[in-house]
């Protein structure tokens, strides 16, 4: 088991109180697994990704544990997290387009970063060039400034930089959202290739785009308002979802599996609850057509069949 997250709670501290953006999240990620992470905007996908690598100054680790390759990951301790970052856990951020220092040549920035992380740039220079070529970039990009690259090129550069030290876990946050359809495919395929070549052991692939994730991910995990509602193999989630939220989500898709139609997560009546003072019990109950009395208690995430987890009183 590569990654084991147990009852993780991370809140944002705001002037009006804590935002319960990640409220008791439990899941495992196997060696070599690419897990798609889906859910409506604001459900906590980015928060989960950030929690595994670096909390920003407003985030607070409230409870729960994270384990990677058998080692405890001290997510709440900024200092103690440093050895994990980049070497063990890495990130392709949602803002990859602006993730590079605009006033440094890319190659120089990479070298400075590597040196700061205790890696001699010379030892890794050949590998860096090889990987740039693998994603279809001329190694010349190292001699350029970020503004000289197109958005898609920057995206791929960040992809290569983030995975250069062969991390155990890669968090890819909306890496395809800003790209056109054909570039999206290329980027997604590169990521799968990175996994196949064992540049990264396992991956959390955050996206809005269910049809894309269906094609590349092994498993899909669906979040709703800071909770996990369902996790199973990609096939199962798409073809036989059990949780009412997932069912509505999939039902809202025009045509899953086609490359031309983009599945966007929308079309479910109502809005998700606010996370500043979230409702007790099942967070979907206000929008759930199947809701009943018991739903005012929080349904546990249970394994309803091997490898298929769901959190709903109706599926238990």
């Amino acid at each position: 088991m590569t990654l084991r997250v147990n009852d993780l709670k991370v809140y944002y501290q705001t002037l009006r109180g804590d935002v319960h953006a990640l409220d008791g999240v439990t899941f495992d990620l196997a060696d070599g697994e690419i897990m798609g992470l889906a859910g409506e905007s604001g459900c906590g996908k980015t928060t989960l990704g950030k929690s595994l690598i670096r909390l920003d100054s407003r985030m607070r680790h409230v409870g729960g544990t994270v384990e990677l390759d058998g080692k405890d990951v001290p997510v709440g301790d900024d200092e103690a997290m440093v050895p994990f970052r980049y070497h063990e856990i890495s990130l392709i951020p949602q803002y990859a387009m602006s993730a590079l220092n605009p006033t440094r040549k890319i190659g120089r920035m990479v070298n400075e970063l590597l040196r700061a992380r205790g890696v001699r740039p010379a030892d890794i220079a050949d590998e860096l060039k090889r990987r740039l070529e693998l994603v279809g970039l001329d190694p010349d990009v190292l001699d350029r400034f970020p503004i000289e690259l197109s958005g898609g090129m920057k995206q791929r550069v960040v992809m290569v930089i983030s995975t250069l030290l062969n991390p155990s876990l890669l968090i890819a946050d909306e890496v395809t959202s800003a790209l056109d359809v054909s570039t999206q495919r290329a980027v997604a395929e590169s990521l799968v290739e990175f996994r196949d070549r064992e540049y990264v052991k396992s991956m959390i692939f955050v996206t809005h785009d269910i049809s894309l994730v269906y094609q590349m991910a092994d498993t899909i995990m669906v979040m709703y308002a800071g909770h996990i509602v369902e996790k199973a193999s990609a096939k199962t989630v798409i073809n036989e979802p059990r949780h009412p939220y997932t069912q509505m989500l999939i039902g809202a898709l025009p045509e899953v599996g086609s490359t031309t139609v983009q599945g966007r997560l929308e079309g479910i009546p109502g809005t998700p609850p606010g996370l500043l003072d979230p409702p007790t019990g099942c967070r979907f109950k206000d929008r759930c057509p199947l809701a009943f009395d018991k739903c005012s208690e929080r349904p546990p995430l249970v394994e309803i069949e091997p490898g298929h987890w769901a959190a709903c009183w109706k599926t238990g």
Binding site: R54, R85, Y95, E112, A116, I161
Partner: peptide, 19 residues
């Protein structure tokens, strides 16, 4: 963003501050 990215990759404060 670039500062956040560098810090997520464990770059020391020194480097981020220099940039």
């Amino acid at each position: 963003d670039y500062a956040n990215y560098l810090q997520a990759l464990g770059a020391p404060r020194r480097l981020v501050r220099r940039y």
